[in-house]
């Protein structure tokens, strides 16, 4: 097994000032050929990029905050994640089913895709590099506590850890626990506490979390 890249998905070279890489050339060529052949238009590509840019962790955070403040909504979210997100006006696409897994006092959840990089992308956008890395994919299923500790999350042995490997048609989002001391916060204030990593399950929100 090669360790030459430290097991991470290294950052690609910058694209603009230097000559294009072979793969950047290939992307342009494929795109132009498909446009010439009327498979889609340049506008279709632009719109698709814009659509993905609009999918951010803030969308998922809004879903979490709603679940924290509206028990009936939380029930619907746990029952059918896709429908509950659509209820919030989110376009979830048609390609998978979203399953929300709830953290409780005694259970902590974390998500991974060991086979590729399945991720709740229509809810919270594209995954961070580490989620796709060899290090995370190999280790989170085998030594989740050590991995979570690397992310600064030390959980007591009394907390059960449930890892979810997204191998087929389900995608997962972690519904974190509402932090103590947030009783008088508004839904918007609560949403600001929920980071991307909280919804992957490598972090938990605190009353002082600043969502990035």
């Amino acid at each position: 097994m090669s360790d030459s890249h430290g097991g991470h998905d290294h950052a690609p070279p910058p694209g603009h000032d230097g000559p294009l890489t072979y793969y950047q050339l290939k992307e342009i060529a494929v795109r132009e050929l498909l446009i010439e052949k009327s498979v889609f238009t340049a506008d279709d590509v632009r719109r698709e990029v814009e659509k993905m840019d609009q999918r951010t962790p803030a969308k998922g955070a809004a879903v979490v905050a709603r679940a924290w403040t509206d028990p009936a909504y939380k029930e619907r979210l746990l029952e059918n994640g896709t429908a509950a997100c659509e209820e919030m006006g989110l376009d979830m696409g048609q390609t998978y089913y979203l399953v929300a897994v709830e953290n409780t006092e005694s259970v902590h959840n974390a998500i991974v895709c060991t086979l590729c990089s399945c991720y709740p992308r229509t809810l919270i956008g594209l995954p961070p590099d580490w989620y796709k890395s060899r290090a995370y994919r190999t280790r989170i299923v085998r030594e989740p506590r050590a991995v979570l500790a690397e992310f600064g999350l030390e959980l007591p042995e009394s907390t059960v850890i449930r890892v979810h490997d997204s191998t087929a048609d389900m995608r997962y989002m972690v519904l974190p626990r509402r932090p103590d001391g947030t009783g008088d916060m508004s839904e918007e204030e609560l949403a600001a506490l929920v980071t991307r990593d909280c919804m992957i399950g490598v972090a938990v929100p605190t009353a002082e979390t600043v969502a990035s």
Partner: peptide
């Protein structure tokens, strides 16, 4: 398609965590 829950200690004989830890796989 099923979601099957496995006990970590049944998957990894050397699993270091407590008995209750699980992994769900579709």
């Amino acid at each position: 398609l099923y979601r099957v829950r496995f006990n970590q200690r049944h998957i990894w004989p050397d699993y270091g965590g407590p008995e209750g830890d699980t992994i769900d796989v579709e």
